[in-house]
């Protein structure tokens, strides 16, 4: 469904992606792990067209991702994104945040969008917060609204960019719970995360990225339990046993 073929990306003179080739199948959950600055988030941002890439090709359901082409709107309505810092619209209510895309981008009928918006808020456990504004919610609640906003577009895939990194530890579980439910329901997901437990339990596959290249990839359990590459072993040892 999502194909990356020899993707290169530089910021100035720094090459952050050095030939990424990977694919994500429909219904698959792929976690991308790796140290900070390795290029994990850049991959997601390139898939969604928030960043351009210099060489190679990215396609979503056969449609080439080109952030300057009109087709990018089509791709973005099919592949939603959830951000580390939630990025909810603070001047709109929770329900309006969820309705914004379907109503103004997809131009769906208001009654239909309203019904779906309320159902999605119920799905993420926030039905009673529909009329609140984002700053009135906790980080975990805001991230769940952001997930509902992404789902409201009825996407074929969702990209999660470190969705729990900005949360208090005790709020992480609620967000991961919602994500696990989505995975169980068959949503295609690409998740940049440091939550190794989530990756092990929920992901079908894990990519370990370092220095802009995929160092190792494979089924989640085998890669996380028996990493083959020395760099992956070192990374996982530091993450899982920091002391």
């Amino acid at each position: 469904m999502i194909e990356l073929n020899d993707v290169h990306k530089s910021f100035g003179k720094v090459e952050v992606l050095k030939g990424i080739t990977a694919s994500v199948e429909k219904g698959e959950v792929v976690c991308i792990i790796g140290p900070s600055g390795s290029g994990k988030s850049t991959i997601l941002r390139c898939i969604n067209g928030l960043e351009s890439y210099d060489r190679g090709e990215i396609s979503v359901e056969g449609l080439k991702v080109d952030r300057d082409a009109p087709s990018i709107v089509n791709i973005r309505t099919q592949v939603s994104m959830v951000f580390q810092r939630f990025n909810l619209f603070p001047h709109r209510t929770v329900l309006e945040n969820v309705m914004e895309g379907p109503l103004f981008v997809k131009k769906e009928p208001r009654a239909q969008v309203l019904e779906r918006g309320r159902a999605l808020l119920a799905q993420v456990g926030l039905a009673e917060k529909a009329d609140a504004h984002p700053p009135q919610l906790s980080g975990g609640q805001q991230q769940r609204v952001a997930i509902a906003r992404a789902l409201a577009m009825q996407p074929k895939a969702i990209l999660f960019d470190e969705p729990t990194s900005a949360l208090d530890p005790e709020l992480v579980g609620d967000v991961l719970g919602v994500m696990r439910k989505l995975a169980d329901d068959g949503m295609t997901m690409v998740v940049v995360t440091h939550e190794m437990g989530f990756a092990r339990d929920v992901a079908d596959r894990v990519l370990f990225i370092d220095g802009g290249v995929i160092v190792e990839q494979g089924p989640a359990k085998s890669l996380l339990n028996q990493p083959q590459h020395a760099r992956t072993q070192d990374f996982l040892r530091r993450v899982l046993h920091p002391l």
């Binding site: 709107v73 973005r76 939603s80 951000f83 990025n87």
Partner: peptide, 24 residues
């Protein structure tokens, strides 16, 4: 991040301005 969130749900430049940036 506000502009990126708007873009990520498919909003173009003008819609992003009208619905997200200008009201704030």
């Amino acid at each position: 991040g506000q502009i990126e969130a708007a873009q990520s749900i498919g909003m173009g430049w003008w819609l992003t301005m009208r619905r997200v940036v200008l009201p704030q």
